[in-house]
């Protein structure tokens, strides 16, 4: 395998990892605050649809992005109301949100565009086009570094760079700010946060809102950058892979990056079975590659490779006085 092929695989790993990364960080904020969120998938899907639909009608990918975030935030609000205000079951709420998005996106898409539950193909400014970083073309002839810079680092859409910048930002927010400390505390021991005079409800709502914004980014990336338009069920389980990555990363931002890159790499490999066969000399089963993220997560959860301990108050509604 030559350098170019390796770079191509890595390049497509990055592209496929980005939605996972954004959704994974979304889940990280929510779960660190003690709100389990298995509705990542649904929020991504809703955002993907709304972003594509509005980008198509307005002709601007940025307006689409805002609309996508808006759609995701509406579902976040439902999750917040159900699990924070009414102290309902967060898991059931997440399941409901997934179905709500799966159904509504197709119903609305059919009503607006009448193309069998999809949006028209996006063109021009309605999509996030790849950005060529400075000097990428002039440096292309430099051996090794040139192609790496040109193929791998340059030439992604702006959302890709935003996603990668969000990793250090999340780390900084979580571990270096007062808000981050409170956020982590509210996921571990909400009563102590409450005793300190800080509103548990408010903190958790903020976490759920951040989660909604990030899921919105992830969904908009799917339909307006990775692909050119919305298709039915286009999130294709990515929300659940992101959830798996979150456990794999044990709820830490940098590890979330590594986990999603790994899962993105697996997805990229599954797209190129020929390459794998040539390199390894034997046929690797495609279904096995598909299932690998889930299998790895189960192994991690089983505690065979270090123990994954979720935030202690995760999934439990906070009641002020028992």
């Amino acid at each position: 395998m030559d350098l170019l092929t390796i770079l191509q695989i890595l390049d497509s790993s990055v592209r496929l990892a980005v939605p996972l990364l954004l959704a994974c960080l979304a889940g990280l904020y929510s779960e660190r605050a003690g709100i389990f969120d298995i509705g990542l998938e649904g929020k991504m899907l809703a955002a993907a649809f709304m972003a594509a639909a509005i980008a198509y009608t307005s002709g601007s990918a940025w307006v689409g992005l805002l609309a996508g975030i808006g759609a995701s935030l509406v579902l976040s609000a439902v999750h917040g109301v159900a699990s924070i205000t009414f102290r309902g079951n967060q898991l059931i709420s997440g399941v409901a949100i997934n179905f709500l998005a799966a159904g509504l996106t197709v119903v609305i898409a059919q009503s607006w565009f009448a193309q069998g539950g999809r949006t028209p193909t996006l063109q021009g400014d309605a999509r996030f086009e790849p950005i060529t970083l400075p000097f990428a073309e002039s440096l292309q002839s430099v051996p090794v570094i040139g192609p790496i810079y040109y193929e791998l680092i340059s030439g992604h859409s702006v959302l890709v760079y935003i996603a990668f910048l969000l990793v250090p930002l999340t780390w900084w927010v979580l571990y270096r700010t007062r808000f981050g400390l409170r956020l982590r505390a509210v996921g571990e021991n909400p009563a102590s946060v409450d005793t300190a005079g800080i509103s548990v409800v408010q903190l958790r709502y903020i976490a759920v809102i951040i989660c909604g914004v990030l899921c919105g980014l992830a969904g908009a990336y799917l339909s307006t950058a990775l692909q050119a338009g919305f298709t039915k069920d286009m999130s294709a389980g990515r929300g659940f892979i992101a959830l798996a990555a979150l456990i794999f990363a044990k709820w830490r931002p940098w590890h979330a990056l590594y986990a999603t890159l790994l899962f993105g790499f697996l997805q990229a490999l599954a797209l190129r079975p020929d390459l794998l066969e040539n390199t390894l000399g034997f046929k690797v089963n495609g279904q096995l590659l598909d299932a690998l993220p889930y299998i790895l997560t189960v192994v991690i959860l089983a505690g065979f490779v270090g123990k994954a301990i979720p935030p202690r108050a995760g999934g439990e509604p906070y009641v002020k006085e028992r």
Partner: peptide, 16 residues
Amino acid sequence: VVIQALVILFTGALDN
């Protein structure tokens, strides 16, 4: 699917 989601939402998550 939408109706199913709403039933889950109201009978499950928004029970309170």
